[in-house]
Nucleic acid binder design. Structure first.
Lengths: 217, 217
DNA sequence: ACGAAGCGGAGAAGATGTCTCCACTTTTCC
DNA sequence: GGAAAAGTGGAGACATCTTCTCCGCTTCGT
């Protein structure tokens, strides 16, 4: 156990370090997969990822035995980041601002990543990984909601399940069909947030201009 | 021209009336297609529609030369109904209620019909048909929006393109991933509508209960 | 009752996807 | 420097799925 261990950071796991060129290819594959999945969702073929990475399909399949294995390797850390965002949002002294920043940052992540949305929503891949992440994040969201309601800044009939639903709704819709204006979800997030307050004197200015009629697909 | 014409209602069009069994099958196919498209979108194969209709594939292909032809035959009248809804909404003396009822009825139609949403949003089938319908409906929506704004019932920074977008967003999201609660879109429509008002003393009660945490896919 | 109209569904033809195999190349280590 | 181990590419086996055709048989209408 107490060897000098040149392979720092891995005790039992590192059965054998990959050859240098193999490791380089592994990284290439992960990078390519991230790009392609983010852009076009999880339905792309591994052949396509191989091509995009500049390696052969065989290489991909030697490193990741199935598509699922690749996907899990890729999204493991992404899922963790949700917990971080929730914690940071709770650190915000203003309850309302905390909730808003959580929703904003979640939407930012999800709007830019078709693959992540697909994983969270359809669970066709990485089911278990998502289940664990959800279980951990649920109470964090609940805490944000309760605090904002206790402060009288959030209408009382909002439930914690509404928050992820709204974020999903905004990002999914903004992607499908109306891809013309990239940040269009911000416009509708603002609108929904104005609906989530218990009462309101005026309006929060909408941050992105509406689509022009001809932009609509 | 002035024959006694037993084939009432069709002058030039009816080159030859279909045999009775053929016509019956045609109706079956249309009915089956409506059901399957509504439920599962336009991507289902014609084989599947044939099976669902209880006829052979050959029969489907003889009646509708391509998938597109079947789709157009099916959705022609559905698209017309949008204009009717807009007109009826404008007939409502209260500007706000008119707009709300338009959005509600649109959402009702679209929420229940995956195929229709797909046609309106992705234009993979029936492109021209949709373009015509959109052109006709655009000014009707604009009229509803302007009237509500003139009455001070709708915030001034809402544009007419926001309306179809919001309806699409609500119905699409309500279908994907979270199919558990059928009318869940009503909850979020209410929320958005509360965000669309220029100011607000209290809240409009949310009409559908939120999803339970375990219901979320 | 007979000809024309219509029918079913096997299967051709073509996409697209996952994953294997093995002759060849590159790295590692003595 | 050179042999053994590790890794590579990509053709292609295999599977699935769609669209659409074809033709022997059935049903309808008169």
């Amino acid at each position: 156990m107490t060897e000098n261990s040149a392979d720092c950071g891995a005790d039992v796991r590192a059965v054998r370090p990959l050859r240098r060129d193999a490791e380089r290819n592994r990284q290439r594959i992960l990078k390519a997969a991230a790009e392609v999945f983010n852009e076009r969702g999880l339905d792309v073929s591994l052949d396509e990822i191989a091509r995009h990475a500049g390696v052969g399909v065989g290489t991909v399949y030697r490193r990741f035995r199935t598509k699922e294995e690749l996907i899990e390797a890729l999204f493991m850390d992404r899922l963790d980041s949700v917990a971080t965002i929730a914690d940071e949002a709770y650190a915000n002294p203003d309850a309302w601002c905390g909730l808003v920043s959580f929703m904003e940052r979640m939407a930012e992540i999800m709007a830019g990543d078709v693959g992540l949305r697909q994983m969270l929503m359809f669970a066709t891949y990485g089911r278990d990984l998502v289940a664990v992440a959800r279980q951990r994040n649920e109470p964090l969201v609940a805490r944000l909601v309760q605090r904002a309601q206790a402060a009288g800044q959030l209408r009382a009939d909002i439930q914690r399940t509404d928050i992820p639903f709204i974020v999903f709704m905004l990002t999914e819709a903004a992607h499908l069909g109306y891809a013309a204006t990239p940040g269009i979800w911000r416009r509708y997030l603002t609108l929904v947030l104005d609906g989530m307050q218990p009462r309101r004197e005026g309006v929060t200015p909408l941050p992105v201009v509406a689509m022009r009629p001809d932009e609509m697909e």
